[in-house]
Design a protein around this nucleic acid. Sequence first.
DNA 1: CTCCAGCCAGGAATGATTCCTACATAGCAC
DNA 2: GTGCTATGTAGGAATCATTCCTGGCTGGAG
Lengths: 171, 171
Amino acid sequence: MNLPLQEIEARFRRHAVRLTRQRAAIYAALAATTSHPSADDLYRIVKRRQPMISRNTVYYTLGVLRTAGLVREVNVGHDMARYDGNVSLHHHLICLGCGQIMDVMDDELNRLQLSNGQAKGFDVLRHRVEFYGYCVSCQQARRDVSPHRRLAPSFIEGGEHGKQFKGHQES
Amino acid sequence: MNLPLQEIEARFRRHAVRLTRQRAAIYAALAATTSHPSADDLYRIVKRRQPMISRNTVYYTLGVLRTAGLVREVNVGHDMARYDGNVSLHHHLICLGCGQIMDVMDDELNRLQLSNGQAKGFDVLRHRVEFYGYCVSCQQARRDVSPHRRLAPSFIEGGEHGKQFKGHQES
DNA sequence: CTCCAGCCAGGAATGATTCCTACATAGCAC
DNA sequence: GTGCTATGTAGGAATCATTCCTGGCTGGAG
Protein backbone atom coordinates (compact mmCIF):
# COMPACT_ATOMS: atom_id res chain seq x y z
CA MET A 1 0.00 0.00 0.00
CA ASN A 2 2.30 2.70 -1.28
CA LEU A 3 1.20 6.22 -0.64
CA PRO A 4 0.79 8.21 -3.87
CA LEU A 5 3.05 11.23 -4.08
CA GLN A 6 -0.01 13.36 -4.47
CA GLU A 7 -1.30 12.29 -1.07
CA ILE A 8 2.08 12.96 0.54
CA GLU A 9 2.08 16.39 -1.05
CA ALA A 10 -1.38 17.09 0.35
CA ARG A 11 -0.43 16.02 3.86
CA PHE A 12 2.76 18.03 3.81
CA ARG A 13 0.90 21.09 2.66
CA ARG A 14 -1.76 20.60 5.29
CA HIS A 15 0.92 20.49 7.97
CA ALA A 16 3.02 23.28 6.44
CA VAL A 17 5.97 21.02 5.73
CA ARG A 18 8.08 21.91 2.73
CA LEU A 19 8.19 19.15 0.17
CA THR A 20 11.51 17.76 -0.96
CA ARG A 21 12.53 14.56 -2.69
CA GLN A 22 14.24 13.35 0.49
CA ARG A 23 11.33 14.12 2.76
CA ALA A 24 8.82 12.47 0.49
CA ALA A 25 10.95 9.32 0.35
CA ILE A 26 11.43 9.17 4.10
CA TYR A 27 7.76 9.71 4.81
CA ALA A 28 6.71 7.24 2.14
CA ALA A 29 9.03 4.57 3.54
CA LEU A 30 7.58 5.06 6.98
CA ALA A 31 4.00 5.07 5.77
CA ALA A 32 4.57 1.87 3.79
CA THR A 33 5.44 -0.29 6.80
CA THR A 34 4.04 -1.19 10.19
CA SER A 35 7.43 -2.30 11.45
CA HIS A 36 8.38 0.89 13.34
CA PRO A 37 11.79 1.35 11.74
CA SER A 38 14.65 3.23 13.37
CA ALA A 39 16.19 6.34 11.84
CA ASP A 40 18.98 4.20 10.50
CA ASP A 41 16.58 1.67 8.99
CA LEU A 42 14.92 4.52 7.14
CA TYR A 43 18.30 5.86 6.07
CA ARG A 44 19.20 2.49 4.56
CA ILE A 45 15.82 2.11 2.85
CA VAL A 46 15.84 5.56 1.30
CA LYS A 47 19.52 5.26 0.36
CA ARG A 48 18.64 2.49 -2.07
CA ARG A 49 16.86 5.02 -4.28
CA GLN A 50 18.73 8.14 -3.28
CA PRO A 51 22.32 7.08 -2.67
CA MET A 52 23.42 10.64 -1.85
CA ILE A 53 21.06 11.11 1.08
CA SER A 54 22.74 11.72 4.39
CA ARG A 55 21.91 10.22 7.72
CA ASN A 56 21.69 13.76 9.00
CA THR A 57 18.86 14.58 6.64
CA VAL A 58 16.94 11.58 7.91
CA TYR A 59 17.30 12.72 11.50
CA TYR A 60 16.48 16.29 10.65
CA THR A 61 13.47 15.30 8.58
CA LEU A 62 12.12 12.98 11.24
CA GLY A 63 12.37 15.87 13.67
CA VAL A 64 10.42 18.09 11.31
CA LEU A 65 7.76 15.49 10.61
CA ARG A 66 7.42 14.75 14.29
CA THR A 67 7.00 18.39 15.19
CA ALA A 68 4.45 18.71 12.43
CA GLY A 69 2.52 15.75 13.82
CA LEU A 70 2.98 13.54 10.77
CA VAL A 71 5.15 11.02 12.54
CA ARG A 72 5.43 9.66 16.02
CA GLU A 73 8.54 8.61 17.89
CA VAL A 74 8.42 5.36 19.82
CA ASN A 75 10.98 4.64 22.51
CA VAL A 76 11.57 1.19 23.82
CA GLY A 77 14.08 0.82 26.60
CA HIS A 78 17.14 2.91 25.92
CA ASP A 79 17.60 1.46 22.49
CA MET A 80 17.58 3.69 19.46
CA ALA A 81 14.40 5.63 18.72
CA ARG A 82 11.90 4.02 16.39
CA TYR A 83 9.35 5.77 14.24
CA ASP A 84 5.70 5.25 13.56
CA GLY A 85 3.79 6.64 10.59
CA ASN A 86 0.53 5.87 12.37
CA VAL A 87 -0.28 8.97 14.36
CA SER A 88 -3.70 7.86 15.54
CA LEU A 89 -4.01 7.21 19.26
CA HIS A 90 -2.76 3.70 19.97
CA HIS A 91 -0.38 1.67 22.12
CA HIS A 92 2.26 -1.00 21.59
CA LEU A 93 3.13 -4.63 22.12
CA ILE A 94 6.87 -5.31 22.09
CA CYS A 95 8.80 -8.56 21.70
CA LEU A 96 11.61 -8.90 24.24
CA GLY A 97 13.36 -11.31 21.92
CA CYS A 98 13.53 -9.67 18.51
CA GLY A 99 12.38 -6.16 19.32
CA GLN A 100 9.46 -6.13 16.93
CA ILE A 101 6.74 -3.65 17.82
CA MET A 102 3.07 -4.28 17.07
CA ASP A 103 0.32 -1.71 17.23
CA VAL A 104 -2.45 -2.16 19.78
CA MET A 105 -5.67 -0.32 19.02
CA ASP A 106 -7.88 -0.34 22.09
CA ASP A 107 -10.29 2.37 23.15
CA GLU A 108 -10.28 1.25 26.73
CA LEU A 109 -6.54 1.79 26.95
CA ASN A 110 -6.92 5.12 25.20
CA ARG A 111 -9.35 6.25 27.87
CA LEU A 112 -7.20 5.40 30.90
CA GLN A 113 -6.74 8.22 33.31
CA LEU A 114 -5.45 8.99 36.76
CA SER A 115 -7.75 9.95 39.59
CA ASN A 116 -7.23 13.44 40.96
CA GLY A 117 -5.55 11.97 44.00
CA GLN A 118 -3.01 10.12 41.87
CA ALA A 119 -2.30 12.99 39.52
CA LYS A 120 -0.60 15.13 42.22
CA GLY A 121 -1.63 18.35 40.55
CA PHE A 122 -0.07 17.37 37.24
CA ASP A 123 -1.74 18.60 34.08
CA VAL A 124 -1.77 15.19 32.38
CA LEU A 125 -1.71 15.46 28.59
CA ARG A 126 -1.21 11.93 27.39
CA HIS A 127 -0.19 8.44 28.40
CA ARG A 128 1.23 5.36 26.87
CA VAL A 129 0.82 1.69 27.54
CA GLU A 130 3.33 -0.91 26.46
CA PHE A 131 3.02 -4.67 26.74
CA TYR A 132 6.17 -6.78 26.74
CA GLY A 133 6.50 -10.43 25.96
CA TYR A 134 7.75 -12.91 23.41
CA CYS A 135 6.34 -13.24 19.93
CA VAL A 136 5.47 -16.65 18.53
CA SER A 137 8.79 -17.29 16.83
CA CYS A 138 10.85 -16.04 19.78
CA GLN A 139 8.85 -18.32 22.08
CA GLN A 140 9.81 -21.18 19.82
CA ALA A 141 13.46 -20.14 19.68
CA ARG A 142 13.61 -19.97 23.47
CA ARG A 143 12.08 -23.40 23.84
CA ASP A 144 14.70 -24.78 21.49
CA VAL A 145 17.56 -23.31 23.50
CA SER A 146 16.39 -24.09 27.03
CA PRO A 147 13.85 -26.92 26.70
CA HIS A 148 12.49 -27.19 30.20
CA ARG A 149 13.63 -24.03 31.85
CA ARG A 150 11.37 -21.04 32.07
CA LEU A 151 13.06 -17.90 33.27
CA ALA A 152 10.97 -16.35 35.98
CA PRO A 153 10.38 -12.69 35.17
CA SER A 154 11.70 -11.70 38.58
CA PHE A 155 11.61 -8.00 37.90
CA ILE A 156 9.40 -5.69 36.02
CA GLU A 157 11.50 -3.77 33.64
CA GLY A 158 14.83 -4.07 31.96
CA GLY A 159 15.11 -7.70 31.00
CA GLU A 160 17.97 -10.06 31.64
CA HIS A 161 20.95 -7.69 31.87
CA GLY A 162 22.66 -8.99 28.74
CA LYS A 163 20.26 -6.94 26.69
CA GLN A 164 18.27 -8.34 23.83
CA PHE A 165 17.52 -7.05 20.36
CA LYS A 166 20.25 -4.50 19.82
CA GLY A 167 19.05 -4.35 16.26
CA HIS A 168 16.04 -5.67 14.43
CA GLN A 169 15.04 -6.84 11.02
CA GLU A 170 13.29 -4.92 8.29
CA SER A 171 10.55 -6.91 6.64
CA MET B 1 14.60 7.05 55.92
CA ASN B 2 18.11 5.71 55.49
CA LEU B 3 18.34 2.00 55.09
CA PRO B 4 20.48 0.40 57.84
CA LEU B 5 23.52 -1.43 56.51
CA GLN B 6 22.21 -4.54 58.16
CA GLU B 7 19.07 -4.45 56.02
CA ILE B 8 21.09 -3.92 52.85
CA GLU B 9 23.26 -6.86 53.82
CA ALA B 10 20.17 -9.03 54.31
CA ARG B 11 18.69 -8.09 50.96
CA PHE B 12 21.95 -8.65 49.15
CA ARG B 13 22.32 -12.06 50.74
CA ARG B 14 18.73 -12.93 49.90
CA HIS B 15 19.38 -12.08 46.26
CA ALA B 16 22.86 -13.62 46.15
CA VAL B 17 24.59 -10.31 45.52
CA ARG B 18 28.09 -9.95 46.89
CA LEU B 19 28.39 -7.10 49.37
CA THR B 20 30.97 -4.39 48.79
CA ARG B 21 31.37 -0.87 50.06
CA GLN B 22 30.57 0.53 46.63
CA ARG B 23 27.47 -1.55 46.10
CA ALA B 24 26.07 -0.79 49.51
CA ALA B 25 26.53 2.93 48.91
CA ILE B 26 24.90 2.83 45.48
CA TYR B 27 21.96 0.81 46.68
CA ALA B 28 21.55 2.94 49.81
CA ALA B 29 21.53 6.13 47.73
CA LEU B 30 18.85 4.70 45.48
CA ALA B 31 16.76 3.41 48.36
CA ALA B 32 16.93 6.78 50.12
CA THR B 33 15.17 8.72 47.37
CA THR B 34 12.00 8.57 45.32
CA SER B 35 13.47 10.80 42.63
CA HIS B 36 14.52 8.07 40.18
CA PRO B 37 18.12 9.21 39.71
CA SER B 38 20.21 8.46 36.65
CA ALA B 39 23.40 6.42 36.79
CA ASP B 40 25.36 9.65 36.75
CA ASP B 41 23.29 11.16 39.56
CA LEU B 42 24.14 8.12 41.65
CA TYR B 43 27.78 8.37 40.66
CA ARG B 44 27.91 11.95 41.89
CA ILE B 45 26.08 11.15 45.12
CA VAL B 46 28.26 8.20 46.02
CA LYS B 47 31.41 10.04 44.96
CA ARG B 48 30.88 12.48 47.81
CA ARG B 49 31.66 9.72 50.30
CA GLN B 50 33.84 7.54 48.11
CA PRO B 51 35.84 9.84 45.86
CA MET B 52 37.67 6.94 44.20
CA ILE B 53 34.55 5.25 42.86
CA SER B 54 34.38 5.00 39.10
CA ARG B 55 31.42 5.65 36.88
CA ASN B 56 32.00 2.20 35.50
CA THR B 57 31.40 0.61 38.87
CA VAL B 58 28.09 2.41 39.14
CA TYR B 59 26.96 1.12 35.76
CA TYR B 60 28.21 -2.37 36.50
CA THR B 61 26.58 -2.43 39.92
CA LEU B 62 23.27 -1.17 38.61
CA GLY B 63 23.36 -3.98 36.08
CA VAL B 64 23.98 -6.50 38.82
CA LEU B 65 21.28 -5.12 41.09
CA ARG B 66 18.83 -5.01 38.22
CA THR B 67 19.51 -8.59 37.23
CA ALA B 68 19.10 -9.58 40.86
CA GLY B 69 15.76 -7.82 41.01
CA LEU B 70 16.78 -5.28 43.64
CA VAL B 71 16.52 -2.33 41.31
CA ARG B 72 14.42 -1.41 38.36
CA GLU B 73 15.41 0.60 35.31
CA VAL B 74 13.02 3.27 34.10
CA ASN B 75 13.31 4.65 30.60
CA VAL B 76 11.70 7.86 29.58
CA GLY B 77 12.04 8.90 25.99
CA HIS B 78 15.54 8.29 24.75
CA ASP B 79 17.08 10.18 27.58
CA MET B 80 19.48 8.51 29.92
CA ALA B 81 18.23 5.56 31.95
CA ARG B 82 16.88 6.29 35.40
CA TYR B 83 16.73 3.91 38.32
CA ASP B 84 14.09 3.01 40.84
CA GLY B 85 14.72 1.33 44.17
CA ASN B 86 11.03 0.52 44.43
CA VAL B 87 10.66 -2.87 42.78
CA SER B 88 7.02 -3.41 43.64
CA LEU B 89 4.62 -3.37 40.70
CA HIS B 90 3.79 0.22 39.88
CA HIS B 91 3.69 2.78 37.09
CA HIS B 92 4.88 6.33 36.49
CA LEU B 93 3.82 9.91 36.02
CA ILE B 94 6.39 12.04 34.22
CA CYS B 95 6.77 15.79 33.95
CA LEU B 96 7.46 16.94 30.40
CA GLY B 97 9.00 20.12 31.74
CA CYS B 98 11.52 19.09 34.37
CA GLY B 99 11.67 15.35 33.87
CA GLN B 100 10.66 14.42 37.39
CA ILE B 101 9.14 10.97 37.72
CA MET B 102 6.48 10.16 40.30
CA ASP B 103 5.35 6.69 41.26
CA VAL B 104 1.75 5.68 40.57
CA MET B 105 0.43 2.80 42.63
CA ASP B 106 -2.82 1.56 41.14
CA ASP B 107 -4.10 -1.99 41.15
CA GLU B 108 -6.37 -1.38 38.23
CA LEU B 109 -3.40 -0.39 36.06
CA ASN B 110 -1.46 -3.36 37.36
CA ARG B 111 -4.22 -5.69 36.19
CA LEU B 112 -4.46 -4.40 32.61
CA GLN B 113 -4.20 -7.06 29.99
CA LEU B 114 -4.65 -7.63 26.31
CA SER B 115 -7.46 -9.75 24.95
CA ASN B 116 -6.35 -12.87 23.11
CA GLY B 117 -7.20 -11.23 19.84
CA GLN B 118 -4.94 -8.28 20.55
CA ALA B 119 -2.05 -10.33 21.89
CA LYS B 120 -1.25 -11.88 18.47
CA GLY B 121 0.11 -15.02 20.04
CA PHE B 122 2.58 -13.12 22.21
CA ASP B 123 3.40 -14.53 25.61
CA VAL B 124 2.88 -11.25 27.46
CA LEU B 125 4.96 -11.04 30.63
CA ARG B 126 4.53 -7.49 31.81
CA HIS B 127 3.38 -4.05 30.83
CA ARG B 128 3.98 -0.49 31.78
CA VAL B 129 1.85 2.60 31.83
CA GLU B 130 3.26 6.10 31.78
CA PHE B 131 1.36 9.34 32.14
CA TYR B 132 2.91 12.53 30.79
CA GLY B 133 2.08 16.07 31.71
CA TYR B 134 3.34 19.12 33.54
CA CYS B 135 3.90 19.25 37.28
CA VAL B 136 2.57 22.15 39.30
CA SER B 137 5.70 24.27 39.13
CA CYS B 138 6.26 23.64 35.42
CA GLN B 139 2.65 24.63 34.74
CA GLN B 140 3.40 27.88 36.53
CA ALA B 141 6.64 28.41 34.65
CA ARG B 142 4.90 27.88 31.33
CA ARG B 143 2.15 30.34 32.21
CA ASP B 144 4.80 32.92 33.03
CA VAL B 145 6.52 32.52 29.69
CA SER B 146 3.50 32.37 27.39
CA PRO B 147 0.61 33.87 29.33
CA HIS B 148 -2.34 33.16 27.09
CA ARG B 149 -1.08 30.56 24.71
CA ARG B 150 -1.71 26.90 25.31
CA LEU B 151 0.28 24.59 23.07
CA ALA B 152 -2.03 22.00 21.62
CA PRO B 153 -0.60 18.54 22.20
CA SER B 154 -0.89 17.79 18.51
CA PHE B 155 0.85 14.45 18.69
CA ILE B 156 1.14 11.69 21.15
CA GLU B 157 4.74 11.13 21.86
CA GLY B 158 7.96 13.00 21.61
CA GLY B 159 7.16 16.51 22.69
CA GLU B 160 8.01 19.70 20.92
CA HIS B 161 11.14 18.78 18.94
CA GLY B 162 13.44 21.05 20.91
CA LYS B 163 13.54 18.42 23.61
CA GLN B 164 12.93 19.17 27.24
CA PHE B 165 14.66 18.10 30.44
CA LYS B 166 18.03 16.94 29.18
CA GLY B 167 19.00 16.75 32.81
CA HIS B 168 17.15 16.94 36.06
CA GLN B 169 17.67 17.97 39.62
CA GLU B 170 18.46 15.85 42.63
CA SER B 171 16.38 16.79 45.66
C1' DC C 1 44.60 -17.70 56.84
C1' DT C 2 44.50 -18.68 51.85
C1' DC C 3 42.83 -18.43 47.56
C1' DC C 4 40.44 -17.15 43.54
C1' DA C 5 36.08 -15.90 41.26
C1' DG C 6 34.34 -11.94 40.87
C1' DC C 7 34.90 -6.93 41.70
C1' DC C 8 36.93 -2.35 40.90
C1' DA C 9 39.26 1.82 38.54
C1' DG C 10 40.54 3.96 34.67
C1' DG C 11 40.99 4.59 30.08
C1' DA C 12 39.63 3.55 25.49
C1' DA C 13 35.88 2.33 22.32
C1' DT C 14 31.12 2.49 20.62
C1' DG C 15 27.23 4.24 18.51
C1' DA C 16 23.04 6.94 18.27
C1' DT C 17 22.25 11.50 17.83
C1' DT C 18 23.38 16.40 17.35
C1' DC C 19 26.13 20.30 15.79
C1' DC C 20 28.44 23.03 12.26
C1' DT C 21 28.99 24.88 7.76
C1' DA C 22 29.07 25.69 2.91
C1' DC C 23 26.38 24.58 -0.98
C1' DA C 24 21.76 23.59 -3.17
C1' DT C 25 16.89 24.22 -3.86
C1' DA C 26 11.65 24.97 -2.96
C1' DG C 27 8.47 27.92 -3.80
C1' DC C 28 6.99 32.75 -3.65
C1' DA C 29 7.02 37.34 -6.07
C1' DC C 30 7.47 39.34 -10.25
C1' DG D 1 9.96 31.46 -16.64
C1' DT D 2 13.54 34.03 -13.65
C1' DG D 3 15.41 35.62 -9.56
C1' DC D 4 15.60 35.71 -4.66
C1' DT D 5 15.88 34.11 -0.11
C1' DA D 6 14.62 31.28 3.58
C1' DT D 7 15.17 26.74 4.29
C1' DG D 8 16.93 22.18 3.37
C1' DT D 9 20.90 19.05 2.45
C1' DA D 10 25.51 16.57 2.78
C1' DG D 11 29.18 15.40 5.18
C1' DG D 12 32.30 15.65 8.65
C1' DA D 13 33.21 16.61 13.41
C1' DA D 14 31.52 16.62 18.15
C1' DT D 15 28.80 14.82 22.05
C1' DC D 16 27.77 11.87 25.57
C1' DA D 17 25.57 7.89 27.78
C1' DT D 18 26.97 3.49 27.98
C1' DT D 19 29.95 -0.54 27.21
C1' DC D 20 34.37 -2.85 26.65
C1' DC D 21 39.00 -4.05 28.09
C1' DT D 22 42.65 -4.79 31.26
C1' DG D 23 45.33 -5.39 35.13
C1' DG D 24 45.24 -5.13 40.06
C1' DC D 25 42.22 -5.89 44.35
C1' DT D 26 39.14 -8.28 47.73
C1' DG D 27 34.91 -10.67 49.78
C1' DG D 28 33.89 -14.54 51.73
C1' DA D 29 33.94 -19.71 51.22
C1' DG D 30 36.63 -23.35 53.02
